[in-house]
Design a protein around this nucleic acid. Structure first.
Lengths: 192, 192, 192, 192
DNA sequence: AACTAACCGAGACGGTACGTCGGGTCTTAGT
DNA sequence: ACTAAGACCCGACGTACCGTCTCGGTTAGTT
């Protein structure tokens, strides 16, 4: 393969058709049953056009995911940290249980066996949102709403951990939503 | 395939050879690159013998996992809930970062796209240990060491969630161990 | 395997059930689609029972064939050589186009790639009948009805050859029957 | 499979490598022991490439046969019908006893259980040569060298029948060659 | 305005692994 | 001791996709 195709000449039509095809197929058949051939066929695109721009199905699905969830990583800030965290946790559970969540689940599953994909996913999806969360938590710390002696990175784990844990171990959706109920308790434990 | 082979006539030799082969191959090549053919070849077994007893690579890996982690789901009980939780969380991180953890990671990844496998995994691996944990937490609640108004199931999420979350989103091992440091803080928040 | 089972203790019931199963399956599914497993299953017999007594499906089918066509290799002798040959050729075409003929066809097909089967088939099926034919032809030669300077073995070829040729190259049945019409012409050419 | 691959894009290299591999393997191991896998491996070709263009091993071997025997179906015509028939029968026996004959034997054997292959074989191999023979015989009939009241199709049976009969029932090669000695006798019987 | 370079669609190709079928052997129970 | 049953090892089957590789065709930027 040419080492690096000229991205200025890239066909936007093909790119969008491919991303849409991946999303539709993930939703209708499930991530694992989506094949590159089916994507190419559904998108009306040749296989090399896919391989020219993505190194694997996982990388492709990651792009789909990023397109769908958008690049906004802001955390709500109403001044009320409990309300803001609850809002955000609710958004996360909504995402995970949506069609886009099926893509996300597929990407995470694939990434367990593809370190490069894992890295890319963490970098483009997870870390930006963690940082958004930490910024908000730091504001709360400075406002004296949260203890200063617990690293915000650990606080993040306490909020996101249970949600992803239940999501990725296949607990039912209501159970995942219940995680958001914990916010108040956790915050209670983190009060100065 | 015959719907149900006669398990009394099953070859224990073949069974063990298969389980060992799966483990060795997972460790040496990574779960995703393990094929049924390679397992059969390495175990000196015909492919039909594998398909006769397991419905998929995931189901097979799940059996390997269960063989390796054993059936002991007891939670330590020294009377000191913080110490016991720390002990257990340390054990969990040790497991996840071990060779057996590679198998576990593979199973979880596969299960994202195989609901039946997810169910079986939760039933045989996750739930028994959750129940062990809850039993210990309930003792602590009764002893007045933990709040009674937070469900023990939610407490479990707070302890296990961060560990799995970091494990499955590919954070580095030291980060995962750091999760155990949270135990004290979390318990602090859960004190009556 | 035991080198030679004791044939005195052989189960006649099993033997007959196997032969019948082979015949029925050849007729209903065609020789090529008959498997040892299907034979065993249909006959209510274990596979080793088959392998104990026959070295291959071909050998088994050959036995079936011999059971069906009987051991009578006599050639008709009314004194009229043309009539006798016509009678016999008619019998042969009737056999070939019967259900038993399907078995015969299968055996011959198999024998193309199994010299031992070919030898056994020639020895048990073909040669005895050739000899019967030659005996009759020799009587005719001695009676001055046929030339003495053409070997009877070659005469046999002239009578049987066209029939088998058309049978084994897949010409239609009516064409095969037409072969019998040749008898008179051939005999004419063989008159002293 | 796609119902009809585009034959314009077919790889001639692959096609020839496959045909050669089939021939070599038939010669070295015998038709029955030739597997599609071995062909693919020997030809340096993927199995799907074989299945894309041929429906079975038999169809493939038939193509090999046709490549090897060529498309020339002319019958010699020196004016001497006995000499011409002898020449041709000698050629046929030479073919049948050659390496190509092993392929032919395999195809005929397979065709006993594959009507479609039988039809194709008769159409591409047998019938053209029969017609060549009949054309020559008709010339002889018109020249008054052969009887006009015996159909040429039957005459063909008398010449080819014995050869194929002995070939397919496994008589030794010398016996097959002896068939050509019959030509003179048969022609004698067919003289007006 | 024609040229040309790169992407595009299509799909054949060499491969790997799939999940299944059946072959022939072996073991176990039963008669 | 032979049988019925069936699990076992093995090899091949025919299929699904993989990722690569030509092919023309189209399209855009350059001359």
């Amino acid at each position: 393969m040419s080492p690096e195709p000229n991205s200025e000449r890239r066909s936007e039509r093909a790119r969008l058709a491919i991303l849409d095809a991946v999303f539709d197929l993930c939703v209708s058949k499930g991530y694992a049953k989506v094949t590159i051939e089916a994507i190419a066929s559904q998108a009306g695109v040749g296989k090399p056009t896919i391989y020219r721009w993505w190194r694997s199905k996982g990388a492709l699905a990651l792009d789909v995911l990023n397109e769908r969830i958008g690049s906004n990583t802001d955390f709500p800030d109403t001044g009320d940290i409990v309300a803001d965290l609850t809002t955000q946790m609710t958004r996360v559970t909504a995402l995970l249980t949506s069609d886009t969540g099926r893509v996300y689940r597929g990407v995470i599953g694939e990434a367990q066996n593809d370190p490069e994909l894992m890295r890319a996913m963490r970098e483009t999806v997870v870390n930006p949102r963690i940082h958004g969360c930490r910024r908000r938590l730091e504001i709360a710390v400075k406002a004296g709403q949260l203890r200063a002696d617990v690293p915000t990175s650990s606080m993040v784990d306490l909020f996101y951990g249970p949600v992803y844990y239940r999501f990725l171990l296949g607990f039912d959706v209501p159970d995942i939503r219940a995680c958001t109920d914990l916010v108040e308790e956790v915050v209670a434990g983190l009060r100065p």
